[in-house]
Structures are given as structure tokens and as C-alpha cells.
């Protein structure tokens, strides 16, 4: 499989405190994103995610290291890189649009700059305006739009060029719940069906967990872990544990578990909507996975499921970043 984005010891310093202090924003980052992959950058504020994305889209020149996007060097072949990318900076909250132009004119302007043939541009603009529910407001000046509407125009603008690589910084920030869900689905479809590579940053851990094939967790400019959400959970767990889901009285279930040699201790008992989840630390996971269902059924209880207790991505994140903000 081809590599869409690759960085090697990519580093960026900024000057702080009136130029006296050198701050490392991105610290010798090595990453490799495959073509067609949905890749997440997760990290607390100031972790270096935005600077990394800005370097990849040629906006910021790195101080050390190299990076290639679609096979082109981000410094030497910056112009070629720009032909292959779509960029969105969601954190601007719609600031990065021409407020004195209508939504349609904003899109038309960017279509011209991207050299999209007029007939294709026209069709795409109308389709994207419709998809993002902007058709009836398309000729209003953007200055009169809400933040969510501006965000939708920005998303449409990013997708307009049909770039094979999308670099997206907080793409769903400012959208309402429905808009965010639809946008996630569209991004997922673009990735799965059109084989687009998406590198995106988010503060939303659940969004990252749901969308990403792989996630890089960044902290203080460094990449502290890169893997699938599932494997990140596996490698960062601090105890051997199982999770038992069942319907019925929890006191009885706890008593059964405590009676088993393989169970060291009960970690938590969490009532859910129609069942209860018990997490228990165990001596041997495989043995626990085989013994617990038997013990339950011999006591007349039928568990809904018994599985390894993996930390959530939120716990992984906190563990890897030391509980960063």
C-alpha cells in the first residue's frame, strides 16, 4: 500500500517570550499515513497538532526533518503538494471566509483558484450547497451566517477540489449534532469509497475512536503513541481485567465473582440502562474468560457478555498525555 503522508524527524520551533525563548512546537515527529487511511491526531491543547498539519499543507516551513505529502517534499515541491490537498482549519470558526461574499461566491472563487473546470465546479458547488443545507442561503453574504453555517461553507470549500488528501483541523467544531453526524458520515464515505486519505485533528475522543483507522497521540510536540484505537487501549491498560455484562441482581453476581480463585478484586459495578457491568481484576484473563460464564450459569445467571476490560480511548489519552488539558 502506498504512503500518502510521511514525516521524518519533522520539527518546528517557535520563538516565545519576545523572541528570547525557543519553544518546541513539533518535536522530531515520525509518521506514516497510508493511502485511503483515516488518520487521527489526538492531543491536548498545545500538543503540536495544528502546527504539524500546517507544515504538511506547506503553510509553515519546518526547522528540521522532512515530510512528503502524496510523494512530494513539503518544502521543495510545495506547489505540487498544494495540488493534492484540501485543508480545513475548523478552529477559526468561519473566520477564514470572505464575509463580504456570498456562500456561492466564496466557493466559486476557490474553484477558480484551484483550476477546477467551470462546468464541474458549478455542479459540485450546487451539490455541496445542497448537501450542507445551504442552498436557500447560498446568495446571502457570509457575514450574516451563524458559526455553524460558516463552518459548513468551509467544509464545502475543502471538499470542492476533490483532493486525494484531506488535512482537517477540527472539522466538526461549531457544527450542531446533526451536522456533525452527517459530516462524519460523509468523511467516512469519502475515505472508504473514494479512497481519500484523511488526516484530522480533534479534541473529541469519541469522534476519533469512531472514525479513525489509526490514531497518533501527541503531547508536548512529540508523538507518544500511534496505533489503532483498539490496540492503543490494549497497550496502555494497567491491569489484567474482565468486564461482565449481565441482567439480574448485582449483589449475587459480585458474590459469584468474589468466590472465584481467578478473580483478584472487583474494580467497579456500573448499572447501565437495562443491565449491569462489573469490572474485575483477574490473575489470568483466559482462565477468567472461561470460568466466569460457567460460574454464572451454575448459579442460574446468564451473562450477556464476558470480555477483556480495555481502557476507553479517553483513559488511553489521559494515560499517554499525563492527563493533559
Amino acid at each position: 500500500m502506498n504512503i500518502a503522508v510521511e514525516t521524518e524527524r519533522l520539527t518546528k520551533y517557535f520563538r516565545g517570550d519576545g523572541g528570547k525563548e525557543r519553544i518546541v512546537a513539533v518535536d522530531h515527529v515520525n509518521l506514516s499515513v497510508r493511502e485511503g487511511e483515516f488518520f487521527g491526531l489526538l492531543g491536548p491543547n498545545g500538543a503540536g497538532k495544528t502546527t504539524l498539519i500546517k507544515m504538511l499543507c506547506t503553510l509553515v516551513i519546518p526547522d528540521e526533518g522532512t515530510a512528503r505529502v502524496a510523494g512530494f517534499d513539503i518544502v521543495k515541491d510545495a506547489e505540487k503538494v498544494r495540488e493534492c490537498i484540501g485543508w480545513l482549519h475548523g478552529e477559526t470558526g468561519g473566520r477564514a471566509l470572505y464575509w463580504r461574499l456570498s456562500a456561492r461566491d466564496n466557493l466559486r472563487f476557490y474553484a477558480y483558484l484551484q483550476n477546477i473546470p467551470p462546468d464541474i465546479a458549478r455542479r459540485r458547488i450546487e451539490a455541496l450547497l445542497e448537501f450542507f443545507e445551504l442552498s436557500k442561503d447560498a446568495d446571502r453574504l457570509v457575514k450574516d451566517f451563524s458559526t455553524g453555517m460558516k463552518m459548513r461553507v468551509m467544509l464545502a470549500r475543502t471538499l470542492l477540489s476533490n483532493a486525494p488528501i484531506l488535512l482537517m483541523d477540527e472539522p466538526t467544531v461549531g457544527l450542531d449534532a446533526t451536522g456533525a453526524i452527517e459530516t462524519r458520515r460523509l468523511l467516512q464515505a469519502l475515505c472508504r469509497e473514494l479512497h481519500k486519505t484523511i488526516v484530522f485533528t480533534t479534541h473529541n475522543i469519541f469522534e476519533a475512536e469512531r472514525l479513525c483507522d489509526r490514531i497518533a497521540v501527541m503531547n508536548k510536540g512529540k508523538v507518544v503513541a500511534v496505533d489503532t484505537p483498539m490496540r492503543l487501549s490494549e497497550v496502555t491498560r494497567k491491569y489484567r481485567g474482565v468486564e461482565v455484562r449481565f441482567r439480574g441482581p448485582s449483589e449475587e453476581a459480585v458474590k459469584i465473582l468474589e468466590g472465584l480463585d481467578v478473580v483478584k478484586s472487583i474494580m467497579s459495578v456500573q448499572p447501565e440502562e437495562d443491565h449491569t457491568v462489573i469490572r474485575a481484576e483477574v490473575k489470568d484473563e483466559e482462565q477468567a474468560l472461561s470460568e466466569i460464564p460457567k460460574a454464572f450459569s451454575s448459579n442460574g445467571l446468564k451473562p450477556i457478555g464476558v470480555q477483556l476490560a480495555l481502557p476507553s480511548l479517553e483513559e488511553v489519552f489521559l494515560s499517554l498525555t499525563g492527563g493533559g488539558s
Binding site: 506547506t58 503553510l59 498544494r82 473566520r95 477564514a96 470572505y98 470549500r157 477540489s161
Partner: peptide
């Protein structure tokens, strides 16, 4: 100030 310079700079213009 408007943030539009960045959005232009990432196009092939």
C-alpha cells in the same frame, strides 16, 4: 487578520 491568507496559500495559486 481574516484568516483568508492561509486558505489561499494552501491552494495551487
Amino acid at each position: 487578520r481574516g484568516g483568508t491568507l492561509e486558505t489561499i496559500a494552501v491552494t495551487p495559486v
